[in-house]
Design a binder for these strands. Structure first.
Ligand SMILES: [Mn+2]
Ligand SMILES: [Mn+2]
Ligand SMILES: [Zn+2]
Ligand SMILES: [Zn+2]
Lengths: 145, 145
DNA sequence: TCCTTATTGAAAATAGTTTTCAATAAGAAA
DNA sequence: TTTCTTATTGAAAACTATTTTCAATAAGGA
């Protein structure tokens, strides 16, 4: 299903600002902040308002089509996300972001935590960072620690 | 080692604002925002500046004595942290935060991700939320889903 | 007790995000 | 295609969070 249908199905309209935000995110493939998305759309001679960037990101996040990616310190930005439960792995050198599920290993961990703490665990946030294959080549090797 | 020594060891001074921030965090046991910490210190008749709260939190975070806790949407706040690598589990009802390590299960997951993606994974952020034992009792039961 | 300097806090500056509201344009219907 | 409804836009203002500046203060070693 294309973007037009995805939005119309929800009674939403595929407008120029929304088209532009989506295409900037598609072209980037790395997490981008609202400001950066806005700047890149201006660079592409698409004069949309920063407010619309915020509103589009919120809307797409609600639909599960975009996801926030966080670092230890702050929110790194927004990336297009495929539907369903998964997590992101971000390269600390070039910011390339890839998705993974990791369901099986995590459920083992969650079971252990529930037993140890007595908590009922129903939500989690998990993100990894490291070096992508390309950036590993450029960086001097370290032995695994 | 007490707080006095922990700070002096680094050439830092244990001042009134720092003492107050620490005692508010100790009394709370749940993640608190800078604003909340400031308000609670005023409530306790300790008139410190909000700026000092920010500066103290940054300093303690750098020393690894305090940790930021995040939700999917935003930063939930700061909690005292024991030294070393671990994660937090936060109750979505009463905000109680407990620590856990989960090293073993995670390293299995990390190995899988490294094999699948070719990334070198060297950092991660993992946080769980759910219901603590007390809050489970107060809440109508749901079967595990 | 003295002295050095790390630290404080009021104020201003900066940054990020949300609200408001009249004008506009998407897309369903005719 | 044209019309009509209303979801959406964007400039401006409001709001909130955080950082910087700098003269005054106080921590703690000497
Ligand atoms: Mn998961
Ligand atoms: Mn870990
Ligand atoms: Zn990379
Ligand atoms: Zn609870």
């Amino acid at each position: 299903m294309n973007w037009q249908d995805k939005l119309n199905k929800e009674g939403l309209r595929l407008t120029t600002p929304r088209r532009v935000v989506i295409s900037v995110l598609e072209a980037a493939g790395v997490p981008l902040s609202p400001q950066t998305i806005h700047q890149r759309s201006l660079d592409a001679d698409e004069e949309i308002g920063l407010v619309s960037v915020y509103r589009t990101l919120e809307m797409l996040t609600d639909l599960g089509l975009v996801r926030r990616v966080h670092g230890h310190e702050a929110c790194l930005g927004y990336v297009l996300a495929s539907p369903g439960h998964h997590h992101h792995l971000v390269c600390r050198s070039c910011s390339t972001a890839v998705e993974f599920s990791g369901m099986d290993d995590l459920s083992t961990l969650i079971d252990h935590i529930q037993e140890e703490t007595g908590f009922l665990v129903d939500e989690h946030m998990l993100q990894f960072s490291g070096l992508c294959p390309q950036c590993r080549k450029r960086t001097p090797h370290h032995d695994q620690d």
